[in-house]
């Protein structure tokens, strides 16, 4: 090894270190945001009280922390992580900067799946029925997008149009279900849609965590192949990637993650599109870092937005989807204007 080659290696490693640092920083920020969210709430508990309630049974405080705030924050974290991760995966496999669970209609499909389970089974369903319904329909919609992409060798535009068409279709189907449902059923559905994070219990969290976190290592394992996909199917094939199998398995995984994020909280759209882009602007397109970092950034946005939504208008709670857009969009615009490199 001579000097120039040595320098090159060092340059690459320095970048990798910077990315790892970003990952660590995002993780630390997320923990901080969660801690802050835990301390803030309508009941006005003090910091010391929060800590005490977290650790031992103090009666009312203990139940506020363990039954209300903590589940809510953990759910926010999971949903954000899931949306960010799914967005990054969809963007990689479709090589499309506009792809996300939301713009591809996968989120609406999952929502429709969840709602139909709620309506069909009325009150007598189990939590995991909803998860199954959401997963089934997210899978169907993702498969449809893939089929269009394959048949027509679809351009970015075609795929997104297909996604948007699906989004409308599944929203309409959801409305139709509500229209046909009885009063109680509609109430149930609306509660589901707007209840958002407030309905999260530990049982739901366990299920969502399994759906979001279990596919994660498998996706991360393929990070290098996602990198190659961005230079086209041909290059990826020539470098030994089984593109077809990669795409299929990644779609199943990303649909599962999407369903996990959506089935208990309703459709939170924006995070899945924006978190990967924000992350990419900062650390580039190496999926070894991009996948976990998109998840962390997504989690950070949702946790932060939720805390904000609970405090600015307290004791009113602004639904999470609204706050997410309010803080995400300006920040995204700022980054768009500021960026010096073209990322898509």
């Amino acid at each position: 090894m001579n000097n120039i080659a040595d320098d090159l290696c060092r340059g690459y490693k320095a970048r990798a270190d910077a990315r790892a640092l970003f990952l660590a920083a995002a993780f630390f920020l997320l923990l901080t945001a969660m801690a802050i969210g835990l301390c803030i709430g309508a009941s006005g508990m003090e910091f010391r009280e929060v800590i005490a309630s977290l650790l031992k049974d103090t009666g009312r405080g203990h139940s506020i922390i363990w039954m209300l705030r903590l589940p809510r924050i953990v759910m926010a974290m999971l949903v954000g992580f899931g949306m960010g991760l799914a967005g990054a995966v969809f963007q990689a496999i479709l090589r499309n900067p506009l792809a996300s669970p939301f713009t591809l209609g996968v989120g609406s499909a999952a929502g429709f799946g969840a709602v139909s389970v709620i309506l069909v089974f009325g009150g007598g369903f189990q939590t995991w029925y909803i998860a199954c319904g959401a997963f089934l329909f997210s899978l169907i919609s993702a498969a449809l997008i893939l089929a269009v992409a394959k048949m027509k060798r679809a351009s970015s535009e075609t795929m997104i149009l297909t996604g948007i068409a699906q989004m409308f279709l599944f929203s309409s189907l959801t409305s139709l279900l509500q229209y046909m449902g009885t009063m109680e059923q509609v109430h149930e559905v609306v509660f589901w849609f707007f209840g958002s994070l407030s309905k999260a219990g530990w049982r739901e969290i366990g299920l969502a965590a399994a759906m979001i976190l279990l596919p994660f290592p498998a996706l991360l394992w393929r990070a290098w192949d996602f990198n190659l996909l961005s230079s086209g199917d041909e290059s990826a094939l020539a470098l030994g990637v089984n593109v077809k199998r990669l795409r299929m398995s990644a779609v199943v995984a990303a649909s599962l993650v999407t369903a996990g994020g959506i089935c208990f909280t309703g459709v939170i759209g924006f995070v899945g599109l924006v978190a990967p882009h924000i992350t990419r602007m900062v650390i580039g397109n190496d999926h070894q870092f991009l996948l976990p970092a998109s998840g962390l950034v997504g989690a950070l946005i949702v946790v932060f937005a939720d805390t904000l939504g609970r405090t600015v208008w307290a004791p009113q709670v602004i639904p999470i989807g609204i706050v997410t857009s309010f803080i995400g969009v300006p920040f995204f615009f700022y980054l768009l204007m500021k960026r010096t490199r073209e990322y898509w």
Partner: peptide, 16 residues
């Protein structure tokens, strides 16, 4: 799409 650096692109050749 989502461009990488020259170093990363060449490194991709090591994928096998």
């Amino acid at each position: 799409r989502f461009p990488a650096t020259v170093f990363e692109t060449v490194l991709a050749g090591r994928r096998p």
